[in-house]
Amino acid sequence: MDFFTRKRSSASSAKERLRLVLIHDRTDLTPEEMEALKDDLLKTIARHIEIDPETIQIGLEKDGREQRLVADIPLRGNARRRTG
């Protein structure tokens, strides 16, 4: 670990790159398709409840050899149902 340039160790970049590549290989979703999916999800949710898009996290997580799509959507304190 090079402290001054804050370069990450090559092993940790290898692991991080692999983590992402394997998720996409296993789910057969490209990063673009994943972004489109997230956008659609957000739009759909926002039709029903008030949300702050900045606080939302949607991503693929690995559990052993299984992938799951995990969304963490904080609701506003006074989250009102949208009418109409």
Binding site: M1, S9, S10, A11, S12, A14, K15, L18
Partner: peptide, 10 residues
């Protein structure tokens, strides 16, 4: 050990 190769755990 030098963090320049993926470990077995990784």
């Amino acid at each position: 050990k030098n963090n320049d190769m993926l470990s077995a755990e990784d």
